[in-house]
């Protein structure tokens, strides 16, 4: 049982973090909070990949002279993939912040219910 816990506990944390995203996006009223929830969700996916790359006794994936063999280094592929995913999440956040700035400028509000009310008024 304890072994199961230590081997898989990290996945549960990741799933909770991941589900925080849909939860925040659906149930929060403030658009910035929604955006933050979205970010948490993206980070959870990144963590998931990074966990897959770990190895017991692995070095960071930079070759140390004289130390060869796949078992000595952690898996570099998830790291490379997640650099891409980080950049994607940064880009998405940038664009959505720009959108929010426009919304705030025009409607003067970032609460969703109030925003919808003001949208329908005009």
């Amino acid at each position: 049982m304890q072994e199961f816990f230590t081997s898989y506990f990290i996945y549960w944390v990741i799933f909770l973090l991941f589900l925080l995203g849909p939860y925040g996006i659906i149930f929060k009223n403030n658009l910035i909070k929604k955006l933050m929830a979205m970010n948490v969700m993206q980070v959870a996916v990144i963590l998931f990949f990074l966990v897959l790359g770990q190895k017991m006794g692995g070095e960071i994936p930079v070759e140390v002279p004289g130390l060869l063999g796949a078992g000595h280094y952690i898996n570099p592929l998830p790291h490379a993939l997640m650099l891409t995913a980080i950049v994607v999440s940064l880009a998405t956040t940038g664009v959505s912040l720009a959108l929010l700035l426009l919304v705030q400028k025009h409607y003067g509000v970032l609460e969703e219910d109030e925003l919808l009310r003001r949208m329908n008024e005009r």
């Binding site: 898989y8 549960w12 790359g53 017991m56 006794g57 063999g69 570099p76």
Partner: peptide, 24 residues
């Protein structure tokens, strides 16, 4: 979760299939 590889397992599928070539 039991379907996933254990953390730190050096014999999981991701550590054995594609990545060894990158390292070696």
């Amino acid at each position: 979760t039991a379907g996933l590889p254990q953390i730190y397992n050096p014999h999981s599928a991701p550590s054995e299939h594609v990545s060894p070539r990158y390292i070696e």
